[in-house]
Amino acid sequence: MSNDSKPNEIILTPMQRGISSTTFTGRPQGMQLRETLKLDLIDLDDYKYIIRIPEGTTSFNPSFYLGLFFPSYKKLKGVEGFKNKYEIVSQEKDEELRLLLEKHLIECERQAQNEYAGRTGLDSIF
């Protein structure tokens, strides 16, 4: 598949949230999923990916996001590089729930950016 063609898909499943859980939480859990999805290898290829978050997800916590994606931020040299390669979308049909999840993802991205730049939240206040 060429770099310009349709992006590949990585579909997260409800089981990856944990048994009877509606949330993606915990840095170790994120790191574990990263290994399962072989993101270390995927980071190095030339393709683009869409990562789909399953329906019925009530939270995508920064801890999980950082465990799953932070090594990619480092390899792809920050937020721009990461966003050029990966797009994260919710598969939620309920609009209100989807908007809440999108807010979570914005916060996750902010924290990843801060961690990448070695900043604290104070930098965004002052």
Binding site: S21, T22, T23, T25, N61, P62
Partner: peptide, 16 residues
């Protein structure tokens, strides 16, 4: 604080 946020999230998220 992150571990507290996670505990809070899972406590509500996994609530029956």
């Amino acid at each position: 604080m992150v571990s507290l946020t996670d505990k809070y999230t899972t406590s509500i998220g996994n609530l029956s």
